[in-house]
Write a protein that binds this DNA or RNA. Structure first.
Length: 181
DNA sequence: CCCTGATTCGC
DNA sequence: GCGAATCAGG
């Protein structure tokens, strides 16, 4: 497929609209995304609004030649192919930068008893939810958790009950909940 | 493993 | 000029 003026125009348009190279290639048809990118570069309109990163990588080495077929030359000039083992780079001295644990924030009385909030709950504290997450007063139990459990011994019992009869219907919990953060 | 754009280079 | 191969990264 040749790059006719029309196709180039379309390419420019789609590219300007922010479509990805693969999208454009798909729409134009007959070309791969590589072709699109190549054309885009040749047209000199490569850097639009870079989707994510500025990406400034150092110059890449020239494309190594695969040299798939290697018929044995009559005049064997190359005797041995030295295979230099890439010496293991010196490992970066790991910085012992360990973040100091956040200062313990003593749960204040929020009018919710011993409850802690999402801001104050932390490790070793029972994370059993109290109240409605949508509620401003929502918080957690906050009692000492039971070992590895995220809950205190009391709530752990509630949290890990064997099974609820059976989950006859799985309607409510499909994949609907995803961004309830 | 999916995707993205970037680059090189044989054609 | 073209685009596959490859790279570098999200």
């Amino acid at each position: 497929m040749a790059w006719t003026e029309e196709r180039v125009t379309e390419l420019k348009k789609l590219w300007a609209e922010g479509h990805s190279a693969s999208q454009i290639a798909k729409q134009l048809g007959g070309v791969t995304r590589n072709a699109v990118i190549g054309k885009v570069h040749r047209l000199g309109l490569s850097g639009r609004a870079t989707p994510s990163r500025p990406v400034k990588r150092p110059p890449r080495l020239a494309r190594p030649k695969p040299q798939v077929v290697q018929p044995i030359a009559a005049t064997a000039t190359k005797t041995t192919t030295a295979t230099p083992k890439p010496a293991r780079e010196a490992s970066t001295p790991a910085l012992p930068s360990r973040m100091a644990p956040a200062a313990y924030v003593k749960p204040k009385r929020l009018g919710n008893g011993d409850m802690v909030t999402v801001m104050t709950v932390q490790d070793s504290m029972c994370k059993w939810p109290i109240g409605d997450p949508a509620d401003p007063d929502f918080g957690f139990c906050g009692h000492a958790s039971d070992g590895d459990s995220p809950y205190c011994s009391e709530h752990a019992k509630l949290a890990f009950q064997p099974s609820r009869r059976s989950r006859e219907r799985r309607d409510t919990y499909g994949q609907t909940v995803r961004k309830a953060g």
